[in-house]
Design a protein around this nucleic acid. Structure first.
Lengths: 227, 227
DNA sequence: AATTCTTTGTGACAATGTCACATACTTCTG
DNA sequence: CAGAAGTATGTGACATTGTCACAAAGAATT
């Protein structure tokens, strides 16, 4: 991992909440924050790791997920620019082990601070405390909606929703594999393949290896809202 | 709801973490805490309510769950003596609506404090902050294991686990309905009925209306750990 | 004893998950 | 460049789970 100190502009760009508050926070982050560059497709933490650092994502994308013995996966959430990991926070706060796997889907730049410092800042800085509490609250809602989706929603609807979510606004072609989609929506690859095939037969999209081209967005959208 | 002030002994009995710290916390709770007695089988909050108060459970049991349009349910967690609700905390902290239903399975005694006070105390008292953070962290792990169970574990195993969980140590007869079990493990009543029937045919338990009698605990236990 | 409500049982069928392969496309390697 | 190896997708068969519709049994009420 590539490590160095990080400058104020980079910090403020990723963490605008720091702008509104006293300089102390930024100075402290510059002083104690450790910059790391994590290459693409690396496992960052595994299930059971202990959390020595708390990190902010400056750029890139991290997937946080659980796996089953049989290889099935379920994505809990993703971290992008300006975000940080509720499970790490929770882990440090209650001194437990990290209960999931985190993996860099894209190369990631992070600033990390040692966990004792994380705890100290919570007591010391109001803005920091607010940031962490909000982080926890928001991620919690996300995870609860994951529960809801998996428990109640049919797979075809979840699939349609997910395709919409990962479709880039100005591009109708998604680069991904059925296996990755399966992990994101918590089902098996075969089910995804079958349903995508159905969608293709309905003229909603066109499949090719490693890519899905949406050709009837309105129908896909309708599917994602089906009762 | 029956409301009154509450005495120190009751508070300390339910919230032992207060013992170890300064008197200020207890005095404040006595001064501003509102005692309520909620009868059995009441809806306490509904989806979309806003959270005006933060409450501690002194006795009784509250179920916090989500429902689907078709009536299916999934229990997120239960609150008992000394606990409080992560979703309420999250709701107050990020100023959002309550995203679930809470319901008193038994008559419940709670002390509540107004949410602005909740926020004020977080800034003011270390012990309070620690309590809330720990609460959030621990409930978060619970909810993540709910995700894991629903996403990966077969229903028969979840059912066996759940039966073991709700079996009283010194009694082998459980008073409940198939419908309630279905809600707890996130499936439908019919599936629970079918699987329980299977368990009965295997000689693991005996069914009667409103009650399940475990007669072969070792087998049930084995089932709950099946690959 | 009749009525109503709640709980449980069940068959049929749809949706999803699993397993075992087959097939096709890509990349690597000599 | 051909063949091999790796990765992604397709598919049939079958098990599990979810849904629907309705029957039957037990408990509570009148």
């Amino acid at each position: 991992m590539n490590k160095r100190k990080v400058n104020e502009v980079e910090i403020l760009d990723a963490l605008p909440f720091l702008k509104s508050i006293e300089q102390a926070g930024i100075r402290e982050l510059q002083r104690f924050g450790i910059f790391s560059l994590i290459p693409k497709n690396q496992f960052i933490t595994m299930e059971g790791d202990s959390c020595q650092f708390f990190s902010f994502v400056l750029s890139g994308k991290i997937k946080v997920y659980k796996t089953a013995e049989n290889g099935r996966e379920i994505t809990l959430y993703r971290l992008e620019k300006g975000q940080s990991c509720i499970l790490t926070a929770s882990c440090i706060l209650s001194n437990k082990k990290f209960p999931a796997i985190s993996f860099s889907e894209e190369a990631v730049e992070v600033i990390s601070i040692p966990s004792p410092l994380f705890l100290e800042w919570i007591d010391k800085y109001d803005f920091w405390r607010n940031y962490v509490f909000n982080l926890l609250s928001e991620r919690l809602s996300e995870i609860i909606s994951v529960v809801e989706e998996i428990a109640f929603r049919n797979v075809d609807i979840r699939l349609a929703q997910h395709l919409i979510k990962i479709t880039n606004v100005n591009k109708d072609e998604i680069q991904t594999t059925h296996q990755l989609i399966a992990g994101d929506i918590g089902t098996s690859r075969e089910v995804v393949s079958r349903l995508l095939k159905d969608f293709e037969e309905e003229g909603i999209l066109i499949l090719s290896r490693g890519s899905i081209k949406i050709i009837d967005y309105p129908s896909l959208n309708a599917k994602s809202k089906k009762v």
